[in-house]
Design a binder for these strands. Structure first.
Lengths: 334, 334
DNA sequence: CTGAAAGCGCTTACAG
DNA sequence: CTGAAAGCGCTTACAG
């Protein structure tokens, strides 16, 4: 910037005004400055700008997800980014991999780069470490799961309700023994989905058999093993509810290996690519990740723009998508 | 930082030394400073630090891809991020959506935030706009496609060789009329794959029928339409080569709708999730996105660390994965 | 080992 | 409308 000013013999202030367009500058002068900018290949330093600005705005927001590679978070991300881009805001993301330490590490890294706001799918149980940053003006919105020890806006799926609907769907098909495979109980969504499962059984007057519930599985392999063990036991389930997309994938593979894909019914929570091309099609309880991202981003920017008011808790509905696997009757198709 | 210094009655320099750990500070003083840091919830401002440091390092790198949501780039990203994280470097990503203007816009945004290096899958034909930034010390590595009008390190798949192998696989199965569906010819990878297809035909002494080549399709719907049109023509192909993962998806759906999934052979370039669960399994020419990311990141950090020397051009081998669809004989299975 | 001072590249009152 | 000066939060020679 100094070079630009030097070349044209104008002040730094004038160059700044032309580049940012903050204050009117006489036509002819502005043009000379723009020419020099182009000539010298001058690129404004956004970090210096943020540092000096009165509002300290960085035009950057950070997203901390469990795993950016997961299709669900991917969709949330794209949705947030679309809205951010319209405002000229850059979106940066990171994966906590469900590790509380990594969540903090990433959050610190983002905050150290002076993001204007943060969208977090919390891995840790306690987000009170963000209280000071919020006081300092950082906007905060949580997605997928509520934060701990700090009150903030949050948008989630109807985990319990969606799972209830999925399990009820299996019950309506005549299933009485339904296996449930879920993530670690330390995860909010896993607990909610398990509660939904229990509620559906209770509503139908069915007993809750602990041997049909297996928590703490997450990756496809562990999920497949757990399903195989359940199916090998005495009085095995005739249907499975897989409470997470990675679990669904592992179980689908394993059922096929066991040749049981047409005999054991299956409904999964969260949708999968190509789920309708598999034989049988995979029935799922679909979430609305784009909607989640849109609501979160809208809320975040409202807070960044200074919206006061109570923290909101938005619960998005889920949708049951029957594709075949969830419609298999007990004992398999005729 | 000033508050921390004030509370403890030490100089700014001392606080800086303790926080960065750059220079030894007496044990007792350092502890007092750390206590004050914790007490005040002080968080170092990375932007100010970058601004003032002699080396101007930001510990941030930027990735500009075609689409972060695409499984291929997703894998490249994770691989780069893993390596960056080990160095304490933050990775920020963005999608150009194959739009040259968006590529520049993102690149500028990253450069304005003073990234130390950039990994780019170029959408534009000309990256000479980066020449000055490289002179200024920004490291540059290109992935998936070579840059235009600027010489730089690049790591790509063996697009032509992989496609040749895939098409030769179909020819070996007895196919003589093989339809080819590719992305826009303005895209480097699309041209290379088409060249590989042509080479395989030529090697087998087969004629190249222009009616069996359709370029300029990208999204699943357009790909499906193109495949349907080709199959509806007189003397239709008995096999299809789909030169991109999104094209493969669209064609698989369409073949199934037409009831042709067991009659028309199919090999796709680039792998898909659940490709082995579909009936028939989808045969593909798999790339090595993790390897691509690892090579790119290693190269980038070597440049950031000051490695001189010629620019390298690394070509990664592909791998043919037969799963069923590519092994269907002409006219369909018996 | 510690402190006082300068300055990174910008923006922002304050004058003119 | 334009310029000179101060200062954002840091790091870095330079002294001591």
């Amino acid at each position: 910037m100094r070079d630009v000013a030097g070349v044209e013999g104008v002040s730094l202030s004038t160059v700044s005004r032309v580049v940012t367009g903050s204050v009117p500058v006489k036509q002819e002068l502005a043009q000379r400055v723009r020419d020099a900018v182009k000539l010298l290949g001058y690129r404004p330093d956004a970090t210096a700008s943020t540092l000096r600005r009165a509002d300290r705005v960085s035009l950057t927001i950070g997203l901390v997800f469990e795993d950016v590679a997961n299709a669900f978070f991917q969709a949330v991300y794209r949705s947030v980014e679309d809205i951010a881009r319209m405002r000229g805001v850059l979106t940066i993301v990171g994966s906590s991999d469900e590790d509380p330490a990594r969540e903090r590490e990433l959050t610190q890294a983002f905050l150290g780069r002076r993001v204007d706001g943060l969208v977090i799918a919390p891995a840790a149980r306690d987000q009170s470490y963000l209280a000071r940053d919020r006081e300092a003006g950082v906007a905060l919105v949580f997605v997928d799961r509520p934060p701990g020890f700090i009150d903030a806006d949050v948008v989630m799926s109807d985990n319990a309700g969606g799972t209830s609907a999925g399990v009820a769907h299996l019950i309506a098909r005549g299933h009485r023994r339904i296996g449930f495979l879920g993530d670690a109980e330390s995860t909010f969504t896993a607990r909610e989905r398990l509660a939904g499962h229990d509620a559906a059984l209770q509503a139908a007057g069915l007993p809750r058999d602990p041997s049909l519930v297996r928590m703490g599985v997450r990756d496809p392999r562990a999920a497949g093993d757990a399903a195989a063990a359940m199916l090998a036991a005495a009085d095995p389930p005739t249907a499975l509810f897989t409470a997470r997309n990675t679990i669904t994938v592992g179980v689908v593979y394993r059922l096929r290996e066991l040749g049981l894909q047409h005999r054991v019914a299956l409904v999964g929570f969260d949708d999968l690519d190509l789920a309708d091309l598999v034989e049988p099609g995979i029935s799922v309880v679909a979430q609305d990740p784009s909607g989640m991202g849109a609501v979160a981003a809208t809320r975040l920017f409202a807070r960044i723009d200074g919206a006061a008011g109570d923290h909101e808790r938005v619960v998005l509905p889920t949708r049951l998508v029957p594709r075949g696997s969830g419609e298999i009757p007990p004992g398999g198709a005729a």
